[in-house]
């Protein structure tokens, strides 16, 4: 639990992350812990950055939020929650690396790339299973996508464990 709580802090530090969509996923998802931790920054961030810069910024974000809540199926929201969690953990590791130094560089790299790799794999799974992208993947059924996902994750974590020293 600890990393997640800290993640909230980490998140609000790094402004370039894509928070507007992803954290919004969580309100209705089943991961209570992730929900609470990840929604907070979203609420605070748009208001802080949007308030000064642009008048339509607020509306824009709320638009996206509404669209997201309307159209995303429950399972995909689950994936999004997981991705948000990965971003949080990754950001936490990065902040640790910057603040406390990267001494066991192997360990940092494999930990960080595990989160990044898992993130892109999950994103790929999300893309492949999305209804809207059906036409892009004639050869990939959702079941195939999931089995691919499992295989790739296994490979990823094998390398990470091997590299961590």
């Amino acid at each position: 639990m600890a990393p997640k709580r800290n993640a909230a802090a980490a998140r609000s530090i790094s402004p370039a992350a894509p928070p507007p969509t992803i954290p919004a996923a969580t309100p209705s998802s089943s991961f209570a812990a992730t929900t609470t931790t990840t929604t907070k920054p979203t609420l605070s961030k748009p208001s802080s950055s949007g308030g000064g810069a642009h008048p339509s910024w607020d509306k824009l974000v709320s638009n996206v939020l509404a669209h997201y809540l309307d159209t995303t199926p429950q399972r995909t929201k689950l994936l999004d929650a997981f991705m948000a969690f990965l971003v949080a953990v990754g950001a936490l590791q990065f902040v640790y690396c910057v603040v406390a130094g990267n001494y066991p560089f192997n360990a940092f790299l494999s930990g960080f790339s595990a989160t990044v790799g898992q993130f892109v794999l999950t994103a790929s799974l999300r893309i492949q299973t999305a209804e809207a992208n059906k036409g892009d993947f004639p050869a990939v059924s959702p079941e195939r996508a999931f089995s691919d996902y499992v295989v790739c994750s296994l490979i990823l974590h094998f390398f990470c464990v091997n590299f961590i020293n």
Binding site: L121, F137, F159
Partner: peptide
């Protein structure tokens, strides 16, 4: 740009970079 490009490239890069660092 297509979602296919995203899937294939990111999978290759994430796994391939780790593999090369071994």
């Amino acid at each position: 740009y297509s979602t296919r490009l995203y899937v294939s490239y990111t999978t290759w890069y994430a796994l391939g970079t780790l593999a090369s660092m071994q």
